[in-house]
């Protein structure tokens, strides 16, 4: 399964970014292959609608689950429309978040 974790940096050791729409990076981790990819958030400087656009990005990468701190209402409804499970209140490193989600 593809899991998307919001991150402050581009490695597995980076801290989870508590923001969804305006996080620094999205880390996409494929639990089947163990591979991961960090994507710089292109919506960081968006003046509006960062949440839904970030949700759109997560969906386009095939994510089935999102691990993050907080999700705004617009992002939440977009993630729901995409059928993506959302786990909020996640902290620590990306690696820890992934381990805890299993």
């Amino acid at each position: 399964m593809m899991i998307c974790i919001t991150s402050q940096g581009d490695t597995l050791e980076s801290q989870v970014d508590p923001r969804f729409g305006r996080c620094a990076y999205f880390v996409f981790a494929d639990t089947a292959t163990g591979k991961f990819e960090a994507v710089k958030n292109p919506n960081l400087e968006a003046t509006g609608g960062a949440g839904p656009q970030s949700a759109q990005l997560a969906a386009s990468k095939g994510a089935k689950k999102v691990l993050t701190g907080n999700v705004g209402p617009n992002a939440m409804s977009t993630l729901a429309a995409a059928g993506i499970e959302v786990v909020t209140g996640v902290s620590g490193t990306v690696k820890e978040a992934l381990a805890n989600s299993k």
């Binding site: 609608g49 759109q56 969906a59 977009t78 429309a81 995409a82 059928g83």
Partner: peptide, 18 residues
């Protein structure tokens, strides 16, 4: 330009207030 539409793999989300 207002990021009011999110197109998902099999769905579409529209944010009227944007």
């Amino acid at each position: 330009q207002y990021n009011a539409i999110a197109v998902l793999p099999a769905n579409i989300a529209f944010f009227e207030h944007m």
